[in-house]
Design a protein around this nucleic acid. Structure first.
Length: 589
DNA sequence: CTGGGGAGGGGGCCC
DNA sequence: AGGGCCCCCTCCCCA
């Protein structure tokens, strides 16, 4: 696979290679690297593996259950099952098992359930009679196949708690739930920018939460431990050795070469907090008891999968973003489910919302433009764009201005145009107070002059500290005390109420309320409670909040979009949270 | 530098 | 689930 990844782009640069899907994926702007998706590859690979399994070819592992024998492949089982991942990880790392485990007795998993789980592993489809649901659930729990367990629970209408978890399980799960509710949602929103960094920081010995510092006691059942797991249960103050890290990656990434290409990210995810929550199952074969916290363990590995991308094309663990979302919803307790099967682009890893939208998105990478204008020959990636284009030839301008003869091709153009009639200029530069009818014009304006300087990354510390936090010592943003002071007042006048009232966002809808001074006073009072450093340190956030309040009246539209007001507010809140966290960390130091 | 038009892309709704 | 249609946003280009 690595060879393919490294050679195919070179081929692609010279000879566009038609894929089976007729698409050539190009990922522009990344050092000339071109990502070529083979959407069918995963299915074909899995299908061939299943054929081999049925024919008994290349099978290096036999599972048995109450006399029934199931030849299978270690790699597949390790990919789909946390239990086997750890079991075989021991072989690689510590050599305990050597070439062992050629036969694994799993009498505790009902034969039918085991058969169903194997089918799932090789086909990504779980086919079971409803009467066998509980056995499959049990088997999935034992083997650490979390998505199946979740699905079974959903069907059975059970929760993990209802199944008699121990106190340790419950405690660990609560922590995991908290983590998921904090971190996972960012993945679902496609906002990974700063989450990883925050997680890394939390892994450090000074940022271990109590549940990590005091891990649940080990299972009283003692079984030979795979050596690879030993580092997982190390005290949190002992970071894994490089060898362990390496092994960790091996066992966690399930062969996804991206995990190798992005070691930092992988380390962030798999080296993150949750690993210390695991009380790894003391497993040999067969596992005599359900591994404690197995759910947590699998969740973590699931995250590794998910954030690694290739959700759509993942063969070894057919876990979709939607499934993850469902799992998050189930574990996190009622988080709003994203609409319509979000899928992740295998090229850019972007989450695409909406059924059937991924092929459309993929054409942005492939450059494929299957829709050609019959009049002028211009090609488009989308038929709706072609349809709009055709209006130029037909003269159709379906969006007439009610106030003037102007007609427009796009509804949005009409909307912009109407603001001219109304005189509304809702987009105002917070620095020079120049108003614009269009938001993009405001953005252009702000990029075009000194506004840009003030909205770039703010210094971490105020001028009174004599450092700007950027590390270059320039301190440009706050070099002029008057400017800084002006900025404070200027920005705080438009501070969104999300800061002042803890995020309710219930501020007045207008950017410039009539009583600006009152607004400013209110903001300053609130900011004073936050401390002078923060007061001086958030021009970007202020401006972003300004955009939110002034630039988007249509709150609620594009609810899941990356540009939606809600998501912008989320990002903004992320920044506030992160910045506060950074300052607090510095203060601790 | 600004106003306006258009293109490209994402998401929601519906079939 | 996939596709059509629409809306929205952002960016680019031109006058």
């Amino acid at each position: 696979m690595d060879a393919m990844r490294h050679t195919l782009p070179r081929l692609q640069l010279t000879v566009p290679m038609p894929l089976k899907t007729g698409k050539v994926a190009m990922s522009p702007g990344e050092d000339g690297l071109i990502g070529i998706p083979f959407p069918e590859h995963s299915n074909e690979l899995l299908s061939h593996l299943n054929d081999q399994r049925r024919a008994g070819l290349l099978c290096d592992l036999t599972l048995t259950s109450r006399g029934a024998r199931y030849p299978t492949h270690r790699s597949v089982m390790a990919a789909v099952s946390l239990y086997f991942r750890r079991l075989f990880g021991a072989e690689e790392g510590g050599g305990e098992g050597g070439g062992g485990f050629s036969v694994c007795q799993l009498d505790c998993v009902a034969p039918d359930a085991l058969d169903a789980l194997l089918e799932f592993a090789y086909t990504a489809t779980l086919t079971i009679p409803s009467s066998g649901m509980r056995d499959v659930l049990r088997g999935a729990q034992l083997l650490g196949i979390q998505c199946v367990a979740d699905a079974c629970r959903d069907i059975l209408g059970e929760t993990a708690e209802a199944e008699g978890e121990t106190a340790e399980e419950q405690r660990a799960q609560n922590t995991a739930t908290e983590r998921i509710s904090q971190g996972e949602s960012r993945v679902m929103k496609g906002s990974r920018r700063k989450t990883d960094k925050k997680k890394v920081k939390k892994v450090g010995p000074h940022h271990i939460n109590s549940s990590v510092l005091n891990p649940p006691p080990a299972s009283p059942i003692s079984h030979p431990s795979p050596a690879s797991d030993s580092f997982r249960s190390l005290p949190s103050t002992q970071p894994p050795s490089p060898e362990q890290e390496d092994l960790h990656h091996k066992s966690g990434q399930n062969g996804d070469p991206r995990g190798i290409r992005e070691p930092g990210r992988r380390a962030t995810l798999n080296g993150g907090l949750l690993h210390w929550l695991h009380e790894r199952p003391r497993i040999a074969h067969p596992p005599p008891v359900p591994p404690l916290n197995d759910k947590l363990s699998e969740d973590d590995d699931m995250e590794g999968f998910g954030d690694d991308g290739m959700l759509m094309g993942s063969t070894s663990m057919p876990t979709s973003v939607a499934e993850r979302g469902a799992a998050v919803s189930a574990v996190g307790g009622g988080r709003k489910r994203k609409s319509q099967t979000p899928q992740q682009c295998p090229v850019c890893q972007k989450i695409i919302h909406g059924a059937g939208k991924l092929p459309r998105h993929m054409r942005t990478h492939t450059g494929e433009k299957p829709f050609q204008c019959s009049a002028c020959g211009v090609r488009f990636t989308r038929n709706d764009k072609l349809k709009i284009h055709m209006r130029k030839h037909t003269g159709e301008r379906p969006y007439p201005c009610p106030h003037c003869p102007a007609r427009f091709l796009h509804s949005y153009d009409l909307k912009n145009h109407l603001s001219l009639h109304s005189g509304a200029r809702p987009f105002e530069c917070p620095l020079c107070h120049k108003a614009f009818a269009r938001e993009d014009h405001l953005q252009r304006h702000r990029k075009g002059h000194s506004c840009l300087e003030l909205r770039t990354r703010r210094p971490r510390r105020g001028p009174e500290h004599g450092e700007d936090g950027r590390g270059d010592g320039s301190g440009r943003e706050q070099s002029n005390p008057l400017e800084a002071l002006s900025l404070q007042a200027h920005s705080s006048a438009f501070l969104p109420h999300t800061v002042l009232d803890g995020g309710s966002g219930s501020g007045p809808p207008l950017m410039f309320p009539a009583d600006v001074e009152r607004e400013r006073s209110f903001a300053l009072q609130a900011l004073a409670q936050l401390g002078p450093r923060r007061l001086a340190g958030y021009p970007e956030l202020f401006l972003r909040g300004l955009e939110l309040r002034g630039g988007r009246e249509a709150e609620g539209e594009d609810p899941g979009g990356t540009h939606s007001p809600a998501s912008q507010r989320d990002r903004w809140a992320d920044d506030v949270e992160e910045e506060i966290g950074e300052e607090e960390a510095e203060e601790e130091e």
